[in-house]
Amino acid sequence: MQSHYFIAVPLPTEIKKELKKTFKKESYPFKRWVHEEDLHLTLVFLGACTNEQLEYINQNGQKILSDMHPFSLQLSSLGTYGKKTEPRIFWMGVKDQPKLHDLRNKVYELCEEAGFVLEKRPFSPHITLARKWVGLDSYNEEGNSGNTLQLEWKVENIILYKSVLTEEPKYKEIYSFSLTGDRE
């Protein structure tokens, strides 16, 4: 089984714990829940990688962030992807933050330079919580309207992760890059 890679904004432990505590399997019957340690906000999904592509990201990842300063993100509201009554993805969004889009654009360009063929869909920042609705009744997103967390955290780094599907948690940190701004 081939590993897949992605670059993401990690979440602080306290945000992960709060998400896990607030959104319980018993209240939201989805088939697969993301392990607490694996919660993140994906910037770019890479898929399979060559050693050369990984080395290119390692060599140039910090350079692209040299003018990026740490910034804050805040959780916003719940959402789903897929069929409204039986969603395939259950997620927590973040409030719009232009600096997040700037960061994503820099990472996206770096990955294209490394030779990756990337998705062209618009960037829709979210944290996947669970997959595949298996409830006996249809999913009702109106029941989630009051279920939001207004938690905030500072984005200070991004991480290149590798998926190891045979382990739990399954995302392993390969490289970490700091938002250093003018500090060097």
Rank of each mutant, 00 (worst) to 15 (best):
N140R: 14
H126P: 04
K99E: 14
P122R: 13
K120W: 08
E142H: 14
D102M: 10
S76P: 07
M92W: 03
W133M: 09
I89F: 00
P87V: 04
M92T: 01
L75S: 02
K106M: 02
R88V: 09
G135M: 01
E113A: 06
H101C: 02
E112I: 12
K83F: 10
N144K: 06
F71E: 12
E142Y: 12
G82S: 06
S72Y: 11
Y81C: 09
Y108R: 10
L73C: 08
V94T: 08
G135E: 04
L75D: 02
V134H: 11
L129K: 06
S76A: 15
V94Q: 00
F90M: 00
R104D: 03
L136E: 12
D102S: 12
G82I: 11
K95H: 08
G143I: 03
P87R: 08
L103D: 03
W91S: 01
F116S: 00
P125Q: 01
R88H: 15
R121Q: 15
I89Q: 00
Y81N: 11
P87F: 10
W91Q: 00
V94W: 02
Q97S: 13
Y139A: 13
V134T: 13
N140H: 10
G143F: 11
Y139R: 06
Y108C: 07
G135Y: 06
E86L: 07
K106P: 05
G135I: 00
L110W: 10
E109F: 05
W91F: 07
W133P: 14
